[in-house]
Design a protein around this nucleic acid. Structure first.
Lengths: 188, 188
DNA sequence: GTCTATAGCTTGATAGAC
DNA sequence: GTCTATCAAGCTATAGAC
C-alpha cells in the first residue's frame, strides 16, 4: 500500500463514518483501513487500544460535537424557535439528510464488548435534557417539555430506521420539519 | 454436547431471538448454537443454506406473523379503535414491552450479504399500508392517513432505540399509548 | 509514523461417525 | 438428525523493517 498520512480530525471522521454505516460488528479493521487509507498496524499506532479505543474515541467525539452544535445552541440567545431552527440545520447536516445512521442505534446492540453503554446513555440523556429545556423555554410545563423532548428524539431515531429500510430520505425530512411543532409552543 | 432435539417452531423462535438481540453480524453460529442447544452441524442440517438461510427464514416467519397478528386484524370486524387495540396488544407482546429490538432495525445495516433488503422493505411497506388503511377508515384523508401511518411506525422504531439505550421500557409504552391518537380520528 | 508480514483466534461451513 | 472434528477465510492484534 502506498505510504499515506492523514490528520487526526480527518482520520476520526472517516472512522466515524464506518461505525455509523456498518455498526460495531460490521466495522471491521479491514473496512476501517480501506476507508482511512491507513494499514491496520498504523491504525494501532494511532489508537493503541485497538478497535475498542477507536469506537470509544468516536463516541466521545460525537458527544462533543453534539455539545457544541446541538446542546449549546439550544441555550444560546434568540427566540426558542430561532434557536431550534439553527439546531435543525446542524442535525440535518450531521445525519446527511437521513443517509447517516445514528450511533445510538448502531452501537447499542448488546454484542458490544466494552462498557460503551454508559457513554451512549449519557449522550442521549444530554440530548433529551437539551430538547426539554427549549420546550420549557417556549412555554411548556416541566412534564410536558420532557415528554415532547422524548417524542422529538424518538421521531428522529425512528425516521432514520425507516430511511435505511426504504432507501428514501423523506421520513427524515418530515421528522425534522415536524420538530418545531413538537418542541415549540405555538400561539393559538 | 448432549444429544438434543427441538421442534421446527421452537428452533426458529430461538434463532429469531438471537438475530433481534444481536443483529446480523452479532448473531454468530456459536451464539445460535448455544441458544438453540443444537451444534453447528445440526443447524446446517436444518438450514442447508447456512446463516443466510436462517436469517431469510426468520424474516419470512416474522413477515407471516405480522400478516396474521397485525395486518389482518387491522382489516377485521369492529370499530377502528377496537381493531387497533387488539393489534396494540399483539405488538406489545411481540416486542416484549420494548425489550426486543425490531429486525427492521437490526438487520438493515448494509453489511448484510444476501438481498435481505427487499424483504425488509416489503414487510415495512405492508405495515405502513395496514396502518394507513385503518387511519383512513377512521376518517382521515388518504394523504393524512399515510402520514399518520408513517408517524406511528416511526414512533415505535424510535422508541425501541431509546429503550435499548436507556434500559428503560417507558418510551415504548408511551409510544404504544399514543398510537390510537395518531391513527384514529377523534370526535371534537 | 507508516509499512509488510504474521500470529492466534473466531467465524461460517463441511465430512463423516453414530 | 444429531454429534465430534476439522477446514479455509477473516478477524483483532503485534513484531519489526524503514
Amino acid at each position: 500500500m502506498a505510504y499515506s498520512k492523514v490528520g487526526d480530525e480527518e482520520l476520526l471522521s472517516k472512522i466515524l463514518q464506518v461505525f455509523r454505516t456498518y455498526g460495531n460488528e460490521g466495522a471491521t479493521l479491514s473496512r476501517i483501513s480501506e476507508a482511512t487509507g491507513l494499514e491496520k498496524a498504523s491504525l494501532y499506532h494511532r489508537f493503541p487500544g485497538g478497535k475498542r479505543d477507536m469506537v470509544r474515541t468516536v463516541v466521545e467525539s460525537v458527544h462533543e460535537w453534539f455539545g457544541e452544535n446541538v446542546i449549546h445552541p439550544l441555550d444560546a440567545k434568540g427566540s426558542p424557535a430561532d434557536r431550534l431552527h439553527r439546531v435543525l440545520r446542524n442535525l440535518r447536516e450531521f445525519y446527511q439528510g437521513g443517509r447517516n445512521s445514528c450511533l445510538l442505534d448502531t452501537l447499542s446492540l448488546p454484542a458490544v464488548e466494552g462498557r460503551l453503554d454508559r457513554a451512549l446513555r449519557e449522550s442521549l440523556l444530554a440530548w433529551l435534557e437539551g430538547f426539554a429545556r427549549i420546550a420549557k423555554a417556549s412555554g411548556f410545563s416541566e412534564r410536558a417539555a420532557r415528554e415532547r423532548a422524548q417524542d422529538a428524539i424518538v421521531s428522529i431515531e425512528g425516521a432514520l430506521v425507516l430511511v435505511r429500510v426504504l432507501h428514501d430520505t423523506k421520513p427524515f425530512e418530515r421528522a425534522l420539519d415536524r420538530l418545531a411543532e413538537t418542541l415549540i409552543k405555538m400561539e393559538k
